[in-house]
Write a protein that binds this DNA or RNA. Structure first.
Lengths: 386, 386
DNA sequence: ATGAAAGCGCTAACAA
DNA sequence: TTGTTAGCGCTTTCAT
């Protein structure tokens, strides 16, 4: 429209500025600014004139200029490690929802688990002057966030604990979740239960391992080293891990798999060998994903409130923006064991899964609610593993 | 560090500015700017001094100020309709990859299929002065992008055609994909094939319908109205659609399902009725998702190169940024029919799927490569539908 | 090779 | 109630 269509410039056509509006309306830029800011100190005639001109010229205020002047940006940076793992987009979804409501804009950085990319994004976000940062730390090395120290903006970490960083943190009750998953299998008579876990260094993995150990310990079942495999949170990793388990002279009769992609891989491995679930191998996964119900048998899983995690993280950030000074908080959102059929339990109703337990918010551990379990008859598995 | 830790301000601590660096180094701001810009006209002593001071002060240039001054922003806006559907995050992943390489930053907006949200994001992005826009149009009403007309920046649409908008477009060969899926089923002897599709108004849905029709027509199989269901691209929609089909007096023996979430829903419905796949109902889905191989039977699907779609979109945008003026292009990326077992075909090797055909880039239609098919014996389904 | 100074578009004192 | 003006942090002529 306003650009020379004949001889297109490389730069985008300069946009309408507040000055042009002011001139056209025959008022000062200050007045235009005031009208647009909704100041109470403007005459109604003035307001009309300005608004009309704004509409006529299709004026859009330049946020850059505004933010530069005011020294405040309503922009939040989000760094996530993996767009392939559906868990993270859901978290982002939650973040987005909260930010949108609060009028904040979201700048997304994808680290792909690469420390360097993460650093680059951090630098860019800093240059952009984002008001706050939601960080889902890279899975590899979770240290080296010294950069953040010299950078005085609120940060909230999600899902994984960045070492050496005192910030708000939102996670789900990984330990409890893993414990419940394991206990559930134990309650059904499984005695040889493997854990396919993520990288050793990652905090989620550590927590899930801890939960697994707790459950075994509580049931006085000795931990077998060979049954704990540290993989990489990805599908192929899960497949290989399960292969290794099945290659054991005395393979486990059940497995807890510590994330959704690895669970998929584990299932693959089991199918490839023609083994039946849960009769020959029982499975409890992590993350309740849309496909869980479409699998045969449907997948029992420890559900994490991904979206709520994101929303909570955003809210924490927004709060801290209002009142810095607060001490760092950690919010632990409850996981839920959703019992379907892959674990060898028969869900009472054909369709609806059984939901078991929940940790409570704000760092509390959840009490186990084993009493809520329907009294399943253990499958009494007979096979190599027993 | 530099903020008063005792009496935290609401605003973030003012960052180090170029002026401070200049003063500290005893040079002019212009020099600092030049050094940082990598100008050749700077003495080596100067450079050293500046660089040292920059490091000492931990100076990070303010991109806002820079961009305001220069009138150019290396920021691209991306608007996507649905973060729950794993297809879109993968597209974003591709976009991100390309943008990162080119040094661009990504601002993400989530419309959730809501026109108003989309408008809001558009306005914000405009205010942010993004250099370009990648738009995956809202599924509901794809019109009303008049806003974009008055806004003179390059836009590339992805996946769906925004009506009334002359912009670059990246899609996959939806028509061909749907045709191949349908033809494949026909080739295996299925004569009653349903299509579970997305909303009528959406361009992808239209294209997939067209492909479905083409295949039927080519095989001289009459189209049955009742077999074409327009759902909503979501899981529950797919489930209900499949339920409706199975409730038909003469239900179809096979179905093409036009996206991944709906396919999951359809499977659910089939399982709920205790029907066997593919013996009683054969299924070909859209989108080759990680879980396809973990389903039993593994899901035959029309794969879309989601990530490549995103990467291509970003590249198109970047190109146009360099040379506006160009005429709008549309790039059609090839789909691939990945044959597994849910369609009633037996993949030759136990594990590796058969990949059939591909449309070629840049708008060409792909030639069907039926010759590549191993000679499957049609399952000769005997049931109500035949 | 380096510095002085103008100005990007906007808001917020301060005046009037 | 409205206008004038300084200046946010940066780059970029234009001098020197």
């Amino acid at each position: 429209m306003k650009s020379s269509d004949s001889q297109r410039a490389t730069r985008p056509a300069r946009a309408v500025t507040i000055t042009e509006v002011a001139t056209q309306a025959g008022v000062s830029t200050a007045s235009v600014s005031r009208v647009l800011a909704g100041s109470r100190f403007v005459g109604s005639r003035m307001r009309e004139r300005v608004l009309a001109t704004v509409a006529k010229l299709d004026y859009h205020p330049n946020r850059l200029a505004r933010d530069l002047r005011v020294g405040l940006r309503k922009v939040i940076g989000v760094i996530i490690p993996d767009l392939q793992n559906p868990f993270f987009p859901e978290v982002v979804h939650g973040v987005e929802a909260a930010l949108y409501t609060a009028g904040y804009t979201l700048v997304l950085g994808h680290s792909g688990g690469l420390a360097e990319r993460e650093r680059t994004h951090l630098a860019v976000l800093r240059g952009e002057g984002v008001a706050g940062l939601i960080l889902i730390p890279d899975s590899e090395r979770e240290a080296s966030y010294e950069t953040l120290h010299s950078w005085d903006i609120p940060v909230v970490a999600v899902d994984r604990t960045p070492s050496g960083l005192e910030v708000d943190l939102v996670t789900s009750s990984n330990r409890v979740g893993a414990r419940e998953a394991t206990s559930h299998l134990l309650a059904h008579g499984y005695k040889t239960i493997a854990l396919i876990n993520g990288q050793k260094g990652v905090s989620v993995a550590q927590e899930r391992l801890a939960g697994y150990q707790e459950a075994l310990h509580a049931a006085r079942v000795p931990l077998q080293e060979a049954f704990v495999i540290h993989s990489d949170f990805r599908q192929e990793g899960g497949r290989m891990a399960m292969c290794r388990l099945l290659d054991l002279p005395r393979p486990p009769r059940a497995a807890v798999v510590a994330n959704n992609l690895m669970a998929l891989g584990a299932l693959q491995a089991i199918h490839e060998r023609g083994l039946r679930i849960p009769d020959e191998v029982a499975i409890v996964g992590f993350d309740d994903m849309p496909w869980a119900t479409s699998l045969r048998p449907p997948l029992t899983a420890v559900a994490q409130p991904a979206e709520e995690i994101g929303r909570t993280a955003a809210q924490l950030l927004l709060e801290r923006l209002r009142s810095p000074g607060r001490l760092p908080r950690r919010v632990v959102l409850p996981t839920r064991l959703i019992i379907r059929a892959s674990c060898g339990a028969h869900a009472p109703t054909g369709v609806e899964p059984v939901v078991v337990s929940a940790a409570r918010k704000h760092g509390q551990t959840n009490k186990s609610v084993n009493s809520e379990y329907p009294a399943f008859k253990p499958p009494v598995p007979a096979g190599p593993g027993l």
